[in-house]
Amino acid sequence: MSVWIARPVMKLALAGMGSDRCEWAAAMHAEFAVAQEAGDGLSFAFGCLTTAWQELPRHAEGRLALARYICALGLILPVAALLLAGLWCGYPWVEPPYAGEIASFARMPTGMVPTIYAGNAAAMTGLATLLLLRIAGLIVLAWFVVDADWDRAGAMQRAGAAATITLTLFSAVAFADLTCVVLPLLAVGAELLSIPMLQRWHEDGVVAEA
């Protein structure tokens, strides 16, 4: 049983060692075979994984990988979770007290209280579906960022921005209230600022290494 866990852990460890530590990765891999025969494979593999993670900030490739993981796990996925929580709570309908708070945070006019009636209630399903697609897009975007696939990440960002603009326009028409698009707009802003910066840093790092 432990062999089935040890092997993927060891693979993860070796993948995290980076190209300038490839000799050490090969050395660990050779000793892993010996450790497995001695019944120590799992603890050896976890030790190697710890080493790989400890070594990440010590080399340029590792720092870039770390930055990509931080961007994906610390920014993109929390934004997706926030939007999902909004959807769970009844988006695009925002309860008036919360709508007021969001509006005051975004310095938007708070005079009009949004109401739901037969006409705009039909739009809610479509808008909620669009937001769900946007959340799915963010999860895919996180994967592309971790994978450093900047072309696909860029395409996903453009699709996300287009979805948010559509949300904004339709929300304005259906509810005469833009508080429900404040969070999606902030998400697009954070994305558009952070990911191109990370991409530029990544490309500069790759050029410097070459």
Binding site: E31, F44, C48
Partner: peptide, 22 residues
């Protein structure tokens, strides 16, 4: 001496030994 033998001889785990060797 090989890495695994060094582990056994020193009592260190791979997560401590390899960073030290590096």
């Amino acid at each position: 001496i090989h890495g695994y033998e060094l582990m056994k001889q020193t009592g260190l785990k791979s997560g401590s030994l390899y960073p030290l060797l590096m």
